[in-house]
Design a protein around this nucleic acid. Structure first.
Lengths: 162, 162
DNA sequence: ACGCCCTTGTTGACATGTCACCAAAAGAGC
DNA sequence: GCTCTTTTGGTGACATGTCAACAAGGGCGT
């Protein structure tokens, strides 16, 4: 006979075993600490926030340094609202600009300005050094390979989960 | 003779090689997608935010279900200010309570309420299932071990960087 | 052309996080 | 006991993120 009391879930939850729990907690802690450190480095070296850097980085990787707002939002996994607000602030600082979209009067094309380009070009070397120092250079080749494989599998799964 | 122009950095930045870049981008993307998904699951299953869950989880893991604010903040890597604000909101929802600290009149002891305990106990199984579904169960034993080793090494390094 | 529905980007209200500052109390040195 | 410094937790102003609603335009069928 079952010992399950009224209201208890039918299936006993499958808790994480010790190794899984260690890995999960380690991931969470690394995530938090790495974020703090990289944010600090970025602000100290370049006066940019993570969000600023991401926007500039994505824009600078396109050929004519411009993207539709929706496209940029999708790439960055941001809501259009969040991006619009953030771009307004970056525009006031002269890092990006908005252009009208030929062929779609609703459209807003986000352009990397000269100042924005300079900002990301100056920030990038410091940022890469920071990423190396606090993570990449601490890993073996095998670990880099494992991280690559594992993260891409999880990403694929999450993309399919819509 | 050097071709370094005036103002250029003395040392050429060591960019990431292809494998490192793939791993780094994969990590960043997994981080973002996993966050979104787990936040969604948590809200849908339990009506809690990530922040709520973290607070409740840390409190529930202590013996008498209470912690000094500073201690909790340190454990969570949050600022005292952020924690204080968040606790005020959680207190209004009845999930936690503040007690005076015997022996230190400045002190604020954060207590998990009955409602808070119920909330975390109901949320936990769903949350673990979510973590499994979107990450842990997608990894091999070797990958779990690699993740464990790698994250703890990075965490140790970051802790030493003060 | 017209009606209909979808997409686009923005906005304002509100939730949350950050930062600088503060009062009160604890702790250290004398 | 008495300064002086540090720690503690909180607060308000402000920066940032979320959410729902919106106006304006595109695209489609007829």
């Amino acid at each position: 006979m079952s010992t399950r009391a009224y209201g208890e879930p039918v299936t006993e939850p499958r808790w994480l075993d010790e190794k899984q729990a260690r890995a999960w907690r380690g991931y969470r802690r690394m995530r938090a600490l790495l974020d703090l450190q990289i944010t600090r480095d970025l602000a100290a070296d370049s006066g940019l926030s993570d969000a600023d850097y991401d926007v500039l980085s994505n824009l600078s990787e396109t050929s004519p340094h411009r993207l539709r707002l929706t496209e940029l939002a999708t790439t960055m996994l941001w809501s259009k609202s969040r991006l619009s607000h953030h771009l307004t602030r970056m525009q006031q600082r002269g890092l990006v600009d908005r252009e009208e979209c030929a062929g779609d009067a609703r459209g807003s094309i986000i352009v990397l300005t000269e100042a924005g380009l300079r900002a990301i070009e100056e920030a990038a070397p410091h940022h890469v050094a920071s990423v190396r120092r606090h993570m990449i250079d601490l890993l073996t080749d095998d670990e880099i390979a494992a991280l690559d494989a594992l993260t891409h599998r999880v990403v694929t799964h999450l993309n399919e989960t819509t």
